[in-house]
Amino acid sequence: MKWTSALAIYILFWSFSVFLVLPFGVRTSDEAGAERVPGQADSAPHEFNAGRIALRVTIVATVLFVLFQLNYYYGWITPQIVDRILPAV
């Protein structure tokens, strides 16, 4: 696999990982014991730390990408195996 293809796949894993990581560790103002700003939604996060979220996303994306690369080289899960497990309807 070319390095440009690997980079594009890593970027896809990173952008999908954002949606996996964002819901975890979110506390609302009520849960944090702070006052809400007038007009603030009940579900709005109390604090948003973009650096911490980016680090978590990078870790998750890297782990998933390494698993993808290992599967690519060693062929643990192939289309033939998936066809046997999930036959066409």
Rank of each mutant, 00 (worst) to 15 (best):
V21K: 00
M1C: 10
F48H: 05
T28I: 12
F16L: 15
F16C: 14
P87R: 11
F16Y: 12
W3H: 09
I53C: 02
G39E: 05
A44E: 00
H46E: 04
N71W: 11
D83Y: 08
F24D: 09
P23Y: 08
I81R: 14
Q69Y: 15
F48Y: 07
F16E: 13
S29K: 00
I81C: 06
P87S: 05
G75T: 00
D42H: 00
A50M: 06
E31P: 07
L7V: 06
Y73A: 14
S15P: 05
L55T: 12
S43N: 03
L7D: 06
L70W: 14
L67Q: 12
A34M: 12
L70N: 14
S17V: 00
K2Y: 11
Y72P: 01
A8F: 04
R84N: 15
P45G: 10
I59N: 02
A32I: 02
N71F: 09
I85S: 15
P23T: 05
H46W: 05
F24P: 06
S5R: 01
S43F: 07
V18L: 14
G39Y: 03
I9Q: 01
W14G: 08
Y10V: 03
L7S: 04
S15G: 08
A6S: 01
H46Y: 01
A61S: 15
I77H: 06
E47R: 02
L20P: 00
P87I: 00
F16A: 12
T62I: 05
I85R: 10
F68P: 04
F13D: 13
Q69L: 06
T4E: 13
V37R: 06
V63L: 06
A6V: 07
R56M: 15
W3A: 14
P87W: 10
R56H: 14
W3Q: 03
D83I: 07
L64I: 08
V66Q: 07
Y72C: 07
Q80E: 02
I11C: 11
V82I: 11
W3I: 05
Q69V: 10
A32T: 08
V63S: 03
I53R: 04
P79Y: 09
P38V: 03
G51W: 08
V57G: 03
L70C: 13
V57A: 03
G75R: 02
T58V: 00
F65G: 04
I53P: 04
F16D: 13
N49A: 01
Q40C: 04
R36F: 13
A88L: 11
V26Y: 04
R52V: 15
K2V: 14
A88K: 10
T28C: 14
A88G: 07
D30H: 02
W3T: 06
T4L: 14
P87V: 00
G39S: 02
V60T: 01
L20I: 01
P23L: 10
E35R: 15
S15Q: 12
V60W: 01
T78M: 12
V63D: 04
Y73I: 13
K2P: 12
V37S: 06
V60I: 12
Y72L: 09
L64P: 06
I77G: 04
M1E: 13
A41I: 03
F19E: 05
G51A: 06
P45N: 01
G39L: 03
R36I: 05
V66H: 08
I53Q: 08
G75Q: 12
L86D: 13
N71P: 10
V57Q: 00
Y10L: 13
T58Y: 02
P23I: 09
S43Q: 12
